[in-house]
C-alpha cells in the first residue's frame, strides 16, 4: 500500500461522536476488507480509536466472510455483538440476510447489493432446472422491515462504469450518504486504499454509489416495491426425458450403482439391483459409467416433439 497523505485531516469528530459499529459481509473476494480498511482509515483520521476483526477467504464454501469495524473515542471489544451493528453492508444479497440479526433493531442501517451469488448448497436437487433454496425474500420486504437502508444492484452499477470489481466502492459511496463527513475526506481515503491504477474508477464508483437514488422503492415504503429487484422466478423444468433401467439378466448384484447413486434412486432387491425411485434420477450417468456388467442404461435426452 502506498503511504497515506496524512496532513489535511483535522482530527475533529463531528457527525458521529459516540462511534459506530459497522459490519461488512460478503462471499469472499469481493472487497469486504477494502471497505473495512477504508472505514477504519477514515475513522482513524477523524481521531477515533478503531478496532477491526475479520474472517476472510471462505469463499462461500459453507463458511463466513465478514469484517467488524468499530470506531469510537474508546473501543474495547473488536467484535460486534448480535443486535449491535449500526450499519450492515452486504456485498451479496443472501449474505446480507444471514447477518440481519446483528443489526440494531429499529435503528440499524441495512445496505446491500441485490446481486445473487448462489452457493452450491442452495442446490436442493440436481435435476436440471430444479428450484434452488436461495433466499426468496425480495429486497423491498427486507428493507421495509428495517429502520433505514437500501438495496441496490451495485454490481450492475459498477459493471456499467467499467469494472464489476468496484461494486464494493459503490456500496461504500452509498454508506457515505449516511455519515456526515466531507466528500473530500472519503475521496482521499478511497484513493489511498484503491489498488494501483484504479483510483479513478474507484472514485467514479464511489460517486455513483453516493449519488444513487432509489427508483421509488426506498426504504420504509414497501408498498412501492421495485419490480426490477424481485425474487427470481422459478425456472421451468426443461422438457427432458430422463430414465434409468437395469437389465436383470446382466446384473450381478455388485451394488456399485446402489451405493454410488448420488440420488439414492437404486436399491438392492435380493441378488440384483433395481430402480427403486425412478423419479429421483437426474440422469447423471454415474451408475451407467460404473456398472461393470453394462446392466444399467440411462437415458437423458430431449423429448421428441
Amino acid at each position: 500500500m502506498r503511504p497515506l497523505p496524512n496532513d489535511d485531516f483535522a482530527p475533529a469528530p463531528r457527525c458521529v461522536e459516540t462511534g459506530l459499529n459497522i459490519l461488512v459481509v460478503g462471499v469472499g473476494g469481493q472487497g469486504v476488507l477494502m471497505i473495512s480498511k477504508a472505514l477504519a482509515l477514515l475513522a482513524q483520521r477523524r481521531g477515533f480509536e478503531v478496532k477491526q476483526s475479520e474472517v476472510h477467504g471462505m469463499a462461500k464454501r459453507g463458511g463466513i466472510v465478514f469484517s467488524h469495524v468499530r470506531f469510537a473515542p474508546k473501543v474495547w471489544s473488536p467484535t460486534i455483538a448480535k443486535g449491535e451493528a449500526d450499519v450492515l453492508i452486504a456485498l451479496e444479497w443472501a449474505e446480507g440476510l444471514r447477518w440481519l440479526d446483528h443489526l440494531r433493531p429499529g435503528r440499524g442501517v441495512f445496505i446491500a447489493d441485490t446481486r445473487r451469488i448462489v452457493p452450491p448448497f442452495a442446490c436442493r436437487s440436481r435435476k436440471p432446472g430444479a428450484p434452488s433454496a436461495y433466499a426468496r425474500e425480495t429486497p423491498a420486504e427486507i428493507v421495509g422491515r428495517h429502520a433505514d437502508g437500501c438495496a441496490l444492484d451495485a454490481t450492475e452499477i459498477a459493471t456499467a462504469l467499467g469494472d464489476a470489481r468496484t461494486a464494493n466502492t459503490v456500496l461504500l459511496g452509498r454508506l457515505s450518504a449516511w455519515l456526515d463527513y466531507p466528500v473530500g475526506d472519503w475521496h482521499a481515503v478511497v484513493e489511498a486504499i484503491a489498488p494501483k491504477g484504479t483510483a479513478e474508477i474507484n472514485r467514479r464508483a464511489f460517486d455513483a454509489g453516493r449519488a444513487w437514488t432509489p427508483p421509488r422503492t426506498d426504504i420504509g415504503d414497501p408498498g412501492t416495491a421495485d419490480a426490477t429487484v424481485a425474487s427470481p422466478p422459478l425456472a421451468a423444468l426443461p422438457d427432458l426425458h430422463i430414465s434409468v433401467a437395469i437389465d436383470p439378466a446382466w446384473c450381478k448384484g455388485c451394488a456399485i450403482c446402489v451405493k454410488l447413486c448420488p440420488e439414492r434412486c437404486l436399491a438392492m432387491d435380493g441378488p440384483i439391483a433395481v430402480v427403486a425411485t425412478p423419479s429421483a434420477c437426474t440422469g447423471c450417468r454415474v451408475c451407467e459409467w460404473l456398472c461393470p456388467d453394462f446392466a444399467v442404461t440411462v437415458r437423458n435426452e430431449g423429448v421428441p416433439a
Binding site: 450381478k252 448384484g253 455388485c254 451394488a255 456399485i256 459409467w289 460404473l290 456398472c291 461393470p292 456388467d293 453394462f294
Partner: peptide
C-alpha cells in the same frame, strides 16, 4: 466377477 473393475 461381480464388481470387477475390468468391466468399467
Amino acid at each position: 466377477c461381480p464388481g470387477c473393475g475390468h468391466g468399467i
